[in-house]
Design a protein around this nucleic acid. Structure first.
Lengths: 176, 176
DNA sequence: ACTCTATTTGAACAACGGTCAATTAATGGA
DNA sequence: TCCATTAATTGACCGTTGTTCAAATAGAGT
């Protein structure tokens, strides 16, 4: 899985072949199918594991500085989501963007869980001031930012950080 | 191209094979390569052509009722973008979502032109009240909505119309 | 009829994901 | 140590894909 991840992070789901992974390991490509049902399941298991980092990040922000400025925390939550997506474009693509039947079957409801995590964070921070509809809009707007820059992975998070902050500021204006 | 479009609208870029298109036409698959450099170029030319509909829609909204309520027009522009994307998910995917080297080469700057169209419409309506950064955020937020529902094409525009209106309302709150 | 170009054909290629019978390695008990 | 059972690996094989290309055919103009 580590070998697969290295290739995957570098080249993306579509470009990495099972034969490549096997060759990097010094194994035959047939052996991979003894451990994983298919290509989708191999990379899916990677992505789910690594998405734990996003959950951790969101939790960390929520739990530190219990009485800190809510606005600031909210901003960091939203920016945290964007940063994770842009720093792991191939992971994000598998989770939310790639259209593939095997992948859809493997993913099941993992994307939903990620959304629920973000939604509950927003609810914790803002209480009932934000309706479910607004949370959904907020998520889709963050998603749009990440989805776009996932298609331009030559731009690092540092490159787009300013834009991300402006985007988040824009979105937060819709919360009042 | 019409034959290709019918298949393409129904099944999407990845699922339509050159052999399928040729068979539907009663031709051999090799002949397609006399007219189009590759698969990407064939479907790209389709999509660019059909995207003209979006431009027309935006122009139509801009030009009718010269003195109508700006807020209302703006709302219809943003909704128009969403509606086009959701009614033509496969077109939208090719233009903005699919990751494919041949496709990227074929697309060149067509996606940019679509964005410019929307941006200039917003600028015409709102003047200098909206900064380029806000226009960009607005676009990315619309994009997020469309991108998400492009992954769930079983939902028609009618199904998500209410959500789209709520999303647009949310975004417009960020303009004041 | 002949020539030149436009078009079509289908075999061939390389690469892919995936399958599977055969083989080899590892394990644990007698 | 031997053996039986399981775990793991192999590589040939399949069907499908996008793409190429020499050869065949069709069409148009002279």
């Amino acid at each position: 899985m580590e070998t697969a991840r290295d290739l995957f992070v570098l080249e993306g789901y579509q470009h990495v072949t099972m034969r490549q992974v096997a060759k990097s390991l010094g194994y035959s490509h047939g052996s991979l199918y003894y451990h994983f049902k298919n290509k989708a399941e191999l990379f899916y298991s990677l992505v789910v594991k690594d998405f734990g980092l996003l959950n951790e990040t969101l939790d960390k922000i929520l739990n530190e500085d219990k009485d800190a400025d809510v606005e600031n925390k909210l901003k960091r939550i939203l920016l945290g989501y964007i940063e994770f997506g842009i720093r792991h474009p191939n992971h994000y693509r598998i989770m939310f963007l790639i259209q593939d039947d095997d992948l859809q079957n493997a993913l099941q409801q993992e994307p939903n869980l990620t959304y629920e995590k973000l939604a509950s964070a927003l609810h914790t921070l803002c209480g009932s001031k934000v309706t479910p509809m607004i949370v959904w809009s907020l998520f889709l707007s963050l998603h749009g930012f990440v989805a776009h820059y996932c298609g331009h992975p030559e731009q690092t998070y540092e490159d787009v950080k300013g834009m991300a902050e402006a985007h988040v500021s824009f979105l937060m204006k819709g919360l009042h």
